[in-house]
Design a protein around this nucleic acid. Structure first.
Length: 605
RNA sequence: GCCCACAUAGCUCAGUAGGUAGAGCACAUUCUUGGUAAGAAUGAGGUCACCGGUUCGAGUCCGGUUGUGGGCUCCA
């Protein structure tokens, strides 16, 4: 699936540089490992990669690249670049291509795909049969559509770097051979490379797992608790409380009604919903008691459906917007767990909309705008929207798919945000809109999802009585806007780099008395600020002021109030911001006004 | 689940050719009362992830297990 992360590189020159760098790397690898089989080596966002099959050693273990190999390969690449060998393109027949690559089984498979049409040399789908072309430089030949730079010297020797080795399946299929992939990054000049490496560094500093520990926000304990299960510490818990409080308030104002449902349900529920057929491998094993099997819920939908079904519904009741902060458990494969962003137990800001067909377009508009407003409140500015349309295997009437896709598309157009369409990428039970936000480092994250469900209304036989006195099938729309509290928190931590906006900062003000003589004054000011609703701590340790400031800085507390003899005499506070800025001495009332503004505007200083 | 790498104090890491463990920070006690990012002393903290093997002897070498990290696959 194409997320924005994997999108093609649009800059023509960068594309050529990266693609050419991949070829040069393949040449260097072949020289060092003559028996290596080449797979594919495309340019990607920020760089390129190439997949190789190095075969197996005597013990049958896959041969791999060592860090020394990478160094040697990179060194050899620079020599090839210095050689300024021209890239020469030639169109060949399928037969000739097969002869050229007779020792390269993966290339032969690609040639077959090109000949038959339908896929290009990277295995990506294309229209019709493709022209088969090869590119040659310095004796190295690769099956390739191009384009490339004119000669190897045009790949800047000081603007690329091999980053790491990873395993990757041939054609992304876990049943096919595991290949060794070398990732590299390549840019037009040294400055760009440096900027990119800096961005990687910055991303590392903002890693929510690192900040989560440093700021004492959350932890996991794989030995005692289990992987993918999050322990929210007091400071993280407070932020979550504030996030939820704000979002829930918006939901109430937006016409949602809150419900609560259990964490487990009988197997018949999950049989009826179909989850035991198509989702079982992601569910925790059943709990058996009194001869009944109960499953931990992986989703809230079936429970909400039961609430809908608890009485006869009239068209006058619709739309129903049923919301729940629902905690679900999904058995994710061990290798995919990652900090807060991929976990096994999480709480969705879940809701289900039940509406009549004529209400549906309006409901879509409404929920899309609601989502964007909510995300904007958390400091996200840039949105990329994706519509995923009907896949080949699907349930539901064509007319409903038509109407739903149409409504989603129209809502996207009206939203005013950039959007794209992923043809055939919808779930089998309905089309959907996914909203990606761009964070402070311009990385995309998927948060909101708005999905039609044509499956559950049928399976549970949902109806409402229309004005004609007849039973009708309602539309059911599933939506999670923040996604999950865990994931959203992880993204938020990285977006702000731990510098939460004042309204979310667990501690908003740290009061720093310089000597014990100001302690009483410090506690008095703290009391005054607390009464105004602020979260305040007094650092009354016997550290020096410098150390207290440093600690408050490291805790990323927005405001520090330094109180010495001068402030005590003048009945003032001396304000320092966490960005190092010093606002000087002012009356407590003036400071409060300052904070009030930051709170209202939800700004991060 | 698959490929690779890694696993030493709460955290970040050292541990040189195998000879029964170190630093900084954090923590505790004491001294220090100091104007915008670290004042000082002392102390407490580890069966070197776990199991097995080689060896007179294993944090160090070998195998396995578990976990973590980077990827792949998956992500209703």
């Amino acid at each position: 699936m194409a997320s924005p992360n994997q999108k093609q590189v649009y800059d023509e020159q960068l594309y050529k540089i990266r693609h050419s760098a991949a070829h040069i790397m393949a040449q260097a690898v072949l020289e060092r490992f003559p028996e290596a089989k080449l797979a594919i080596g495309p340019p990607i966002k920020d760089g390129f990669y190439y997949d190789f099959d190095l075969g197996r050693d005597e013990e049958g273990k896959l041969k791999t690249f060592s860090p020394e190999d990478l160094e040697a390969i990179e060194k050899r690449m620079r020599q090839i670049i210095a050689g300024r060998y021209p890239f020469e393109r030639r169109v060949v027949s399928a037969a000739e291509a097969r002869e050229l690559f007779k020792d390269q089984p993966y290339k032969l498979e690609l040639i077959e795909g090109l000949e038959k049409g339908g896929t290009d040399e990277h295995g990506e789908p294309i229209e019709g049969p493709a022209e088969i072309s090869i590119y040659k430089h310095d004796g190295f030949i690769d099956l390739c559509r191009g384009p490339h730079v004119e000669h190897t010297g045009q790949v800047p020797a000081d603007a690329f770097k091999l980053l790491h080795v990873a395993g990757a399946y041939w054609r992304g299929d876990e049943n096919r051979p595991m290949l060794q992939r070398i990732y590299g990054t390549a840019w037009k000049n040294k400055k760009q490379l440096k900027a990119y490496l800096n961005r990687l560094e910055e991303a590392k500093k903002r890693d929510h797992r690192k900040l989560g520990r440093e700021l004492d926000l959350f932890s996991t304990n794989h030995e005692m608790v289990g992987g993918g299960l999050i322990l929210w510490h007091p400071k993280g818990g407070l932020i979550r409380y504030l996030m939820e409080e704000h979002a829930k308030k918006m939901h109430l104002e937006g016409g949602y009604e809150f419900v609560y449902t259990p964490h487990i349900g009988r197997s018949v529920l999950w049989e009826t919903s179909g989850h035991l057929d198509f989702y079982k491998e992601n569910m925790y094993a059943p709990i058996e008691i009194d001869g009944q099997e109960y499953y931990l819920k992986p989703m809230n939908c079936p429970f909400h459906v039961q609430i809908y079904k608890s009485r006869v519904r009239s068209y006058r009741d619709l739309p129903i917007r049923m919301a729940e902060w629902g905690t679900v458990y999904r058995y994710e494969r061990s290798g995919v767990l990652h900090g807060l962003t991929r976990v096994r137990g999480f709480t969705q800001d879940d809701a289900h909309l039940f509406c009549a067909p004529e209400q549906m377009p309006q409901e879509i508009d409404r929920v899309l705008n609601f989502s964007i407003r909510l995300l904007q409140d958390f400091g996200f500015q840039d949105f990329q929207l994706y519509l995923s349309t009907r896949p080949e295997k699907r349930v539901g009437e064509e007319a409903k798919w038509d109407a739903a896709e149409d409504a989603l598309l129209e809502a996207l157009k009206r939203s005013g945000h950039p959007y794209d369409i992923h043809e055939g990428d919808g779930a089998f039970y309905g089309p959907k809109i996914d909203i990606y936000v761009t964070d402070a480092l311009e990385r995309p994250w998927q948060l909101s999802t708005i999905q039609f469900d044509f499956n559950l209304p049928e399976r549970f036989d949902l109806t409402y009585i229309g004005s004609d006195g007849q039973a009708h099938r309602p539309y059911m729309i599933h939506r999670a806007l923040m996604g999950s509290m865990e994931r959203f928190f992880g993204v938020l931590i990285e977006h702000y780099g731990g510098n939460f906006p004042v309204w979310l900062a667990p501690v908003q003000v740290k009061i720093i008395p310089i000597t014990d003589a100001q302690k009483d004054y410090a506690f008095a000011v703290a009391e005054q600020l607390r009464n105004a609703g602020l979260r305040v701590e007094v650092d009354d340790s016997d550290s020096r002021m410098n150390a207290k400031i440093r600690n408050a800085q490291l805790e990323k507390i927005p405001y520090m109030l330094v109180l010495g003899a001068k402030e005590l005499d003048a009945n003032q506070v001396n304000v320092r911001l966490r960005n190092g800025q010093r606002l000087g001495a002012m009356a407590v009332e003036d400071f409060l006004a300052l904070v009030q503004e930051a709170l209202e505007k939800k700004i991060a200083i």
